[in-house]
């Protein structure tokens, strides 16, 4: 760095004032100009968050929302070069500082994450899917997953109820958020625990439905795997129609 210490400090003071609005003395500056920078910087952060979290903005009282924005801008060192990704840092900031407990809003982390994940999936870089065909045998075939997805676990069902109601229904809510490969719209699907287990075994282990059902039968000493398999088939058929699953692998991978 070729700045002299006083020039560095001037920039530091200007940055600090922009982030906090706290009184400061910076030589040669005008009060009106400094206030303008504070306004512009804070507006940028606020507008970005309002755009990313319209529901959270609506359900939080003004004083809490403004406090979150002020604290986030003042205390959090923003890392991303891309401001449209800053909401992800906001979600982490709110979670790490546990405003959900502090403000008795147990649904807050889930709501912010739910709102962010839609943006993340909508904008995520394109991922090429494995080669697939629409012809296949659903029980034995290797099913190809749409790679543009996020599997989400929520503690409060903010996607099903208004937040005040959602807080009365804590639990494990699995949700798939994915991008339609043709329309590129973001789609949401509620998953049961069995759907989630099935999905993860398809996506990460490349197991067939028969293999997954057989594994469950063995693990839980079930007498009949047929009801499980029937449910799995229904799930895969439904989600294949809705493009979470794209088809069947062109070449079946060997299972060992």
């Amino acid at each position: 760095m070729l700045y002299q210490p006083d020039t560095y400090k001037i920039e530091q003071d200007l940055s600090r004032f922009g982030r906090t609005g706290n009184d400061t003395f910076i030589p040669g500056t005008t009060e009106e100009g400094l206030r303008q920078y504070r306004r512009l910087l804070r507006n940028n952060i606020n507008n970005t968050m309002v755009q990313a979290f319209p529901i959270s903005r609506q359900v939080l009282p003004d004083e809490e929302w403004n406090e979150l924005i002020n604290l986030f801008f003042a205390d959090h060192d923003a890392k991303t070069t891309q401001i449209w990704k800053l909401p992800a840092e906001f979600v982490t900031f709110v979670k790490e500082n546990d405003y959900a407990t502090l403000w008795s809003k147990p649904w807050l982390n889930d709501l912010l994450y739910f709102e962010w994940i839609e943006i993340e999936v909508y904008t995520m870089p394109d991922i090429e899917a494995e080669p697939f065909t629409l012809q296949g045998e659903i029980r034995e075939g290797t099913i190809v997953v749409n790679p543009e997805h996020r599997l989400v676990l929520l503690r409060y069902p903010v996607h099903l109820y208004a937040v005040e109601e959602a807080k009365n229904h804590p639990g494990d809510y699995f949700m798939m958020v994915y991008r339609h490969p043709e329309t590129r719209e973001v789609l949401f699907a509620d998953l049961t625990a069995l759907d989630t287990f099935t999905f993860e075994n398809i996506a990460h282990e490349q197991l067939s439905l028969s293999d997954i059902a057989a594994g469950l039968k063995l693990q839980f000493a079930l007498s009949d795997q047929h009801p499980l398999l029937t449910n799995m088939i229904a799930f895969v058929q439904k989600m294949m129609a809705q493009k979470l699953f794209l088809g069947y692998a062109v070449e079946r991978k060997e299972q060992f």
């Binding site: 920039e11 940055s15 940028n44 060192d77």
Partner: peptide
């Protein structure tokens, strides 16, 4: 950007 924190606006250099 200053002290490893992005500001997302253009501040004047002395």
């Amino acid at each position: 950007k200053l002290d490893n924190a992005h500001l997302y606006d253009l501040l004047p250099i002395p």
